[in-house]
Design a protein around this nucleic acid. Sequence first.
DNA 1: CTAGTTCTGTATCGATCGATACAGAACTAG
DNA 2: CTAGTTCTGTATCGATCGATACAGAACTAG
Lengths: 202, 202
Amino acid sequence: MATKQSGAIGRPRGFDTDQALERAMLVFWELGYEGAGLATLTEAMGISTTSMYAAFGNKEELFRKALERYTEGPSAYLTRALEEPTAFGVATAILEGAVRATTGPTHPHGCMGVQAALAVGASGRGPRDLLIAWRNDGHFRVRERFQRAVDDGDLPPQADPDLLARYVATLTFGIAVQAASGVDRDELQAMADTALRVWPPA
Amino acid sequence: MATKQSGAIGRPRGFDTDQALERAMLVFWELGYEGAGLATLTEAMGISTTSMYAAFGNKEELFRKALERYTEGPSAYLTRALEEPTAFGVATAILEGAVRATTGPTHPHGCMGVQAALAVGASGRGPRDLLIAWRNDGHFRVRERFQRAVDDGDLPPQADPDLLARYVATLTFGIAVQAASGVDRDELQAMADTALRVWPPA
DNA sequence: CTAGTTCTGTATCGATCGATACAGAACTAG
DNA sequence: CTAGTTCTGTATCGATCGATACAGAACTAG
């Protein structure tokens, strides 16, 4: 990945890879994997299809890299949330992060990890399975954090970390679907506040 | 819609319209609007594209009719749930219905109304907007039912019907997303039971 | 300068997309 | 029987899909 390296051999790239990937991410986020055609993608990226293939491999690889960027960008709230000192703080930060990430004014509404490839034809199996793994990974990380909370005495000993993580994930994904339907930030945040009024729910 | 009518003029239809629509619904449910190509649809329906166009108009019309069938079939639990005598009963029935409808062994996992067209390209705008309206309609009906519960004294006077309906909808859609990811019925039902342990949450 | 390497732009590939033209089959009415 | 109507099967339409061939541009190394 040694781009822009001085002393590199050959004609230098005429565009900013990071910026192109950012724009591709936004297109996938808004239109989904199958809804985003190469023409739409490359136009948004400001490059030709040839340059896209040279830089990213193919459409599926581009999607993978866009998802990585999404994880480290708009979805980074999850990692930060897991560092909250209490399980309640973790749950609160996750839901608030989800509301903010799915209703922002500067990007598509909804969550790329939920809407980009929920149901797809044959050509989208790879990306769909990738997103399933992505969502499961989020669940696992939250569950581990809640297990630690039980071990620490922050959550009561009879609390079920898997169940609580499942509950938080359910709310998060539900928020994403509704954000994609146009439900606004305030209403979703109020809903999240209501849900968190009882913690832990079990 | 006068099919099978004795005395009808012209060559009679060589296939069962209801059965063909049922099969189309299952394909849309599993593959989404853009993921379901005409070739896949007509093969599953057991008819040629010509017959499909003659009977249903075009792909988008076929999708509309498939969604109606979904509403009256797999999604009919919502209408039944709204007839429960208490708001708690309504919420319980909705979540249980959602779990069952999205994890059944005889049909695709997930909810057709959530996954069929969350994110789409230009050709899927119609179906996507149709599904947004479909989801909103569900929310409105639940909200009205909860408003009645407040009026009846079943819910406390300070309860917010919109917020409670939003909460139930969030859980329902979250369940749908996770069912599509392969989370099994028992786990989702346990999660729903946990969430309902406190009612109303506000 | 030349040789070697990499990127870009144009032009186009075969495959699939949704959709339709058209001839013939299958029915009713008389 | 004939005339009129509707459905079916084949064959194919233009448009778009993701992807690539190829020539030339733009760089480094020597």
